[in-house]
């Protein structure tokens, strides 16, 4: 009698078909793509397209596209470090060596380097944006979905809709 009892399960509610086969409610995809280098001389820099697709209700847009440069990522990282309790993952390196003059290649504007950095940034932003505590930070939402980052914003927490 005991063996029978021990192999039983607790009674569970049956799952409905929509929950079982519908799209999951944790959908969040961020692509970093389409790097473009603009400007000349010391004002030269590269921007990347950040495309967000999500069904998480905390984001006000389900789809959005913005352009960001490396220093914007650095800004986001330092804001998160200061505002949240999250251990923020590192960014891909700053590549100081590549910024020295008289190089054989294009330095930080070399295609291979940009590609490598793009992948690193994509990893970084996916890690950060998936964190439930980072998702409460206004800076993350501005970074991902506002056309222009207002760096003089007031840091605050986003409440769920």
């Amino acid at each position: 009698a005991e063996t029978v009892a021990d192999t039983r399960r607790l009674i569970t509610k049956p799952q409905n078909l929509n929950d079982a086969y519908g799209p999951p409610s944790n959908f969040l995809e961020i692509d970093v793509s389409n790097p473009q280098t603009v400007g000349v001389g010391r004002g030269r820099f590269t921007t990347y397209e950040i495309r967000v697709k999500t069904n998480l209700p905390i984001f006000k847009l389900k789809e959005s596209t913005v352009r960001r440069r490396y220093s914007d990522f650095e800004w986001l990282r330092s804001e998160l470090e200061r505002e949240s309790k999250v251990v923020v993952p590192p960014l891909p390196g700053k590549a100081f060596l590549r910024q020295l003059p008289f190089r054989g290649d294009d330095g930080i504007f070399d295609d291979n380097f940009i590609e490598e950095r793009k992948q690193g940034l994509e990893q970084f932003i996916n890690k950060v944006a998936g964190h439930p505590l980072a998702q409460n930070e206004r800076c993350l939402h501005m970074f991902l979905q506002d056309e222009i980052i207002d760096k003089s914003y007031t840091p605050s927490k986003i409440r769920h809709a």
Binding site: D6, T7, R9, Q15, A20
Partner: peptide
């Protein structure tokens, strides 16, 4: 896992 799923433990 998705919503509504239950995972048994033994």
């Amino acid at each position: 896992p998705v919503r509504g799923e239950s995972i048994p433990i033994r």
